[in-house]
Design a protein around this nucleic acid. Structure first.
Length: 599
RNA sequence: GCGCCCGUAGCUCAACCGGAUAGAGCAUCCGCCUUCUAAGCGGACGGUUGCAGGUUCGAGUCCUGCCGGGCGCGCCA
């Protein structure tokens, strides 16, 4: 199925070819001047430059050549050589009808599907999620859904931060906090063998009583702070990290408890946000590959000794700056951030063999990924361009620096969600739904509204730039917000429900009113918005489309009564509304949102 | 110091390969519920796109310089 915009491209290409003009310039875009046209082509201007002729003459010739095409109701040359194209109501009606009958609502697939792995979320053991985790999680989730919908075999991996120095800190802190734990770890380490299943079960049971997620939340910041100021403490944590990575049984067992407790809680929190991972692989899963990888790097002659550490230099001729080397083995003998990342590349290659890996991680880590990717290419673990860092900007406070609460701490994601849910409940009660809906549905709706508000507020910004985190804006339900999108969907559902009750049926779509034209044009523009969001890895483009669609519907709703109309007009408007709902809900789903039935 | 990113309306953000009159939301003001959910709709107000040059028929967009801000620059992740 070809969309209208693409059909116009083809018409233009035909005309350009006939006239001996560069065909790559034959492209229609939505008009900047909706009062003058639906689409415009600026190709005559660029062509004039290339072939050295008058742009208006070229435009006039193209317009002439286009003259017989049936989908246009108006073709005009304007300004310096814009070709303004207006579509006939018939063409729009036919296209709207096509989309109405299309399970994919007008969206195309990629030409050649690829295998894509998306690394996002990046939760860590013992670190509760804060607002900073919101971006990676929801951008990554949306990219995953967009890729999958367009036909790629797509896998989302949480890439759980469960390995490294932080674990040494925590193991030490837990041993300090409780003599029973200290004894357990030390005895197991001394024994040097895995405990029996019974002993292991008993140990986990004892740990479950002693260390909860809340304890970890409390212990980690304290230990991290101590590690910064106290050298002996820091050195012990490093040693314990190395012991864990050497798989000393006591450290390993305690670590497994930490990871398990955290993961269960995190998966629940992610799910509540509409974020679900296909894989929950940890950095620890890449760990077993490290020895052979180090040997391999050695064999390839890439490893160098430097200040007691082992590194890979990744500088290239023509670099504008000197990149730091990849630190493969620390002077303590530990694997570092980059080591596990490199080993993870190997692991993914063996287990999933992706054509491309997208890392949805804070922009500040651009240099780190550049180093890792270069090392991977040097070692032959990945091809140039196969690994891509999808960086995003930070959420800043009004002072322009990464967001902190008034107390100076980080805002926990769960607190933000609860705050927003409170506002949603209040708003639902005002609407009188508190009494009408069963408790469960009421809570579910409040949650949907809150999540939509938070996620849309983030997704509507271009991912690459930092933005100011404004609590009021994030928890607002009016204007260009997630709840606005949900509300439009809810209104349509309500209309469709009434229509069904009254036995009113939808019919063929006939576009006549300006509000209907706008809707038909937007339905057609979905495919462009989706493929653009895909190509540029920019969900905000899809969010923008969803908003425009919702807004156009709201105007249509105000201007064109649906059920109060009669006959074919009513049947047409009902069909149009139903199609808008389906495309809107599809957009919401691709953004990781969902609309309730009532709100 | 070196490098990367950013600077657009009072505030928060958009702007497709360089195109016409730079768009939304919030805030402010004025209208609209006796038709389907007013979390809505219509309208008004609001801009020298940080500054100065350059390329171009045409620049928020490309180039150079300056000013301002953020971030990164091997033993955390």
């Amino acid at each position: 199925m070809t969309g209208l915009r693409r059909a116009i491209d083809q018409r233009l290409a035909g005309a350009f070819e006939t006239l001996g003009l560069p065909v790559d310039l034959a492209r229609a875009t939505p008009s900047d001047r909706p009062d003058l046209a639906d689409f415009q082509c600026n190709g005559a201007l660029a062509a004039a430059k290339r072939v050295g002729r008058n742009p208006r003459e070229i435009a006039a010739a193209v317009a002439e050549a286009l003259g017989a095409a049936p989908e246009f109701s108006g073709i005009e040359v304007a300004g310096p050589g814009f070709i303004n194209l207006r579509l006939s109501d018939e063409a729009l009606s036919a296209r709207a009808g096509e989309i109405a009958g299309d399970p994919r609502l007008g969206a195309g697939m990629v030409g050649t599907p690829r295998r894509i792995l998306i690394d996002y979320g990046g939760p860590n053991v013992a670190k509760p999620m804060h607002v900073g985790h919101l971006r990676s999680s929801i951008i990554g989730e949306s990219l995953k859904r967009i890729h999958r919908f367009r036909g790629d075999t797509t896998v989302g991996d949480a890439h759980f931060g469960d390995w490294g120095y932080q674990m040494g800190l925590l193991i030490g802190a837990a041993m300090d906090a409780d003599p029973w734990i200290r004894a357990l770890v030390e005895d197991l380490n001394a024994a040097g063998t895995e405990p029996s299943p019974e002993a292991e079960a008993a140990a986990f049971e004892g740990l479950a009583r002693r260390i909860s997620l809340a304890d970890l939340d409390r212990m980690y910041p304290e230990a991290a702070a101590l590690g910064k100021t106290d050298e002996a403490y820091r050195n012990r944590a490093r040693r314990l990290t190395a012991e864990l990575q050497a798989r000393r049984p006591g450290c390993l067992l305690l670590w497994r408890h930490f990871a398990r407790v955290t993961q269960v809680a995190l998966a629940r929190d992610f799910h509540a946000l509409g974020v679900d991972f296909d894989l929950w692989k940890g950095e620890s899963d890449a760990d077993p590959l490290i020895p052979e990888m180090v040997a391999d790097l050695e064999a390839r002659g890439l490893l160098e000794d430097d200040q007691g550490a082992r590194i890979v230099r990744v500088g290239r001729q023509g670099d504008k700056r000197e990149l730091p080397p990849l630190l493969v083995v620390s002077s303590e003998g530990s694997a570092m951030y980059g080591t596990t990342d490199l080993a993870t590349i190997l692991d993914r290659r063996r287990t999933f063999d992706p054509d491309q890996v997208l890392y949805v991680v804070d922009q500040r880590q651009a240099d780190h990924f550049e180093v890792v990717f270069r090392a991977a290419v040097l070692a032959g673990y990945a091809a140039e361009g196969q690994l891509e860092h999808i960086g995003f900007g930070t959420m800043n406070g009004t002072d322009g620096k990464p967001f902190k609460t008034r107390e100076g701490g980080v805002l926990k994601l769960n607190d933000l969600i609860e705050m927003t849910r409170d506002r949603a409940r209040e708003r639902l009660r005002e609407a009188g739904l508190g009494a009408e809906l069963p408790e469960e549905a009421f809570e579910a709706t409040a949650h949907q509204v809150a999540v939509a508000a938070l996620k849309f507020a983030d997704l509507s910004n271009f991912r690459g730039t930092s933005y100011v985190f404004d609590l009021d804006r994030f928890t607002s339900f009016e204007g260009k917000t997630g709840p606005y999108l949900l509300y439009q969907a809810v209104r349509i559902k309500s209309v469709l429900r009434r229509a069904a009750e009254q036995g009113i049926e939808a019919g063929g779509i006939r576009i006549t009113d300006p509000a209907e034209r706008e809707l038909a044009l937007l339905l057609d523009a979905f495919d462009d918005a989706l493929s653009e969001a895909y190509d540029r890895r920019a969900p905000n483009l899809l969010a923008e489309h969803a908003y425009r669609l919702a807004q156009a519907f709201s105007r249509f709703y105000a201007a064109c009564p649906i059920l109060p109309a009669e006959g074919e007009v009513r049947a047409s408007r009902l069909a149009l509304a139903g199609t808008i709902l389906r495309q809107l809900e599809l957009c919401l789903d691709l953004l990781g949102l969902s609309a309730p039935d009532r709100m």
